[in-house]
Nucleic acid binder design. Structure first.
Length: 420
RNA sequence: GUGGGCGUAGCUCAGCUGGUAGAGCACCCGGUUGUGGUCCGGGAUGUCGCGGGUUCGAGCCCCGUCGCUCACCCCA
């Protein structure tokens, strides 16, 4: 056992499997770019207040899961537990909402929550998120959802499910909350559950215990309290989802852990992930901008869990067997072969062809083994024969088939370039 | 923060009612003075998580401790 270990509960990715992580993240980012979202790169730490005011003091995320510390200037700093609040801080600070709307942004990177780790739940984890700020068109709601859906499909995922609901506007929520609190007061509950309900009565909809589920089956649902405006918005969202063939389940009992959500709210679950099955979620946030000191502008976005989506892809075996395959592996078997090969890979790389060389004087057999392990598409042996004749063979590793070539870089480039 | 399971080779694990540690995979070398994967032969590798206790003797039993893991709460 080595002396040092990574801090508890962090996810780490290293070869040979880190390319799978990269593959998943790239597909999520590609889907965002495909829909016109642009990168926003932000610090992983913020003024603690960005989160206490943005995410909400009463949430678990803020009240017990944040990595908060004092910096050397005595400021309270927090490692970001989620992405949206920081994005809104930057939007306000840099007046990004003063130009043409909507502002469409994507981000990726590590996030931090000080929870007890378990399968699919890490203290440092990775998200890809997008935010569309400026309008509250139902089309934008559906666009955001479809970006996630497109990415999941591109990754070959099938066993995931979209849950949606509407958390409506403040007035609808207040009306519902009053009735819900009244309803809960009539139930026989244990101390801890009563405390939970005080914090947020909606939480009880999420309880996993059967007796609570049964009791809550007759509870008043927010969806029955929607104002006509919220209702027609939600109806339109559902219609648009159907129009672009995105399947969804209306889940009026869905609960989200962040306070800022209003209106359309959604979650993606994966069937094969065990207890932590959420692979992404998001929703609209009407009050967030103003609570952080900005203009009254509506926005919607999502956060996708890269770690969990990778787990889902592995569970469904949806990833390609070779990722980031290099084109050529050069095996030198003499000193002069090594010298020629070394120059060769430099020139090929300049031409944009990925290649590598067998280092370490391991001889032909060792070099071929290295070629095999590298996963390269082709290998090329260079010894004295090749150098004197100027001819060589490109061996297709998968089949053993051999292509004759000259050692001239231009010939190799054209043969390797065409073989993609 | 609460509860369960588990810590033995780089990895996955076996190790009988306590008797001084093993397998498979991976790695290295060779069989094949110039072609990898399969096959065959050979080789290296461990303070059995750590500390204490019981015992003639502990990988195994007891206590403590650290770590990992799964689940609860909650979330990506």
């Amino acid at each position: 056992m080595s002396k040092f270990q990574a801090p508890k509960g962090v996810s780490e990715y290293f070869p040979p499997n880190s390319d799978q992580f990269e593959y998943v993240r790239d597909h999520l980012l590609t889907a965002a770019k495909l829909a016109g979202y642009s990168l926003i790169e932000l610090p992983v730490f913020e003024d603690t207040e960005v989160f206490t005011r943005g995410v909400g003091e009463s949430t678990d995320v803020v009240s017990k899961e944040m990595y908060t510390f004092e910096d050397r200037g005595g400021r309270s700093i927090t490692l970001r537990p989620e992405g949206t609040a920081g994005v809104m801080r930057a939007v306000i600070e840099h007046n990004l909402d003063r130009g043409q709307l909507p502002v469409k942004l994507f981000y990726t990177g590590p996030f931090f929550r000080a929870e007890r780790p378990q399968a699919g739940r890490y203290r440092q984890f990775y998200q890809v998120g997008i935010e569309a700020i400026g309008y509250n068109d139902p089309e934008i709601d559906v666009e955001v959802i479809s970006v996630a859906d497109t990415a999941f499909k591109a990754l070959g995922l099938k066993q995931y499910k979209l849950n949606i609901t509407s958390l409506a506007d403040a007035k609808s929520r207040d009306n519902h909350r009053k009735d819900l609190v009244k309803f809960i007061a009539g139930l026989k509950l244990d101390e801890a559950t009563i405390e939970r309900a005080k914090l947020n009565p909606l939480r009880l909809f999420d309880d996993k215990r059967d007796e609570i589920k049964n009791a809550m089956s007759k509870a008043p649902l927010l969806l029955d309290y929607l104002s006509s405006e919220s209702k027609s918005h939600f109806e339109e969202v559902k219609r648009l989802l159907s129009e672009i063939n995105i399947e969804y389940t209306i889940n009026p009992r869905m609960v989200r852990g962040l306070d800022y959500y209003t209106g359309t709210t959604f979650e993606f679950d994966h069937a094969l992930l065990g207890a932590q099955s959420g692979i992404g979620g998001g929703g609209r946030y009407d009050g967030l901008m103003t609570s952080l000191g900005g203009a009254e502008v509506s926005g919607i976005g999502f956060g996708l869990g890269v770690d969990r989506i990778l787990m889902a892809c592995l569970a469904e075996e949806s990833l390609p067997s070779t990722i980031n395959q290099i084109q050529l592996f050069v095996v030198p078997i003499t000193d002069s072969g090594k010298s020629v090969g070394f120059k060769l890979i430099s020139q090929l790389r300049d031409a944009g062809i990925s290649c590598d060389l067998a280092y370490g004087d391991r001889g032909l057999k060792g070099g071929m083994k290295a070629a095999d392990k590298s996963g390269a598409r082709y290998c090329l042996v260079i010894g004295d024969d090749e150098i004197s004749s100027g001819k060589c063979e490109l061996k297709l590793m998968s089949s053993g088939e051999v292509i004759s070539s000259s050692l001239a870089v231009s010939d190799l480039i054209s043969r390797l370039g065409n073989s993609k």
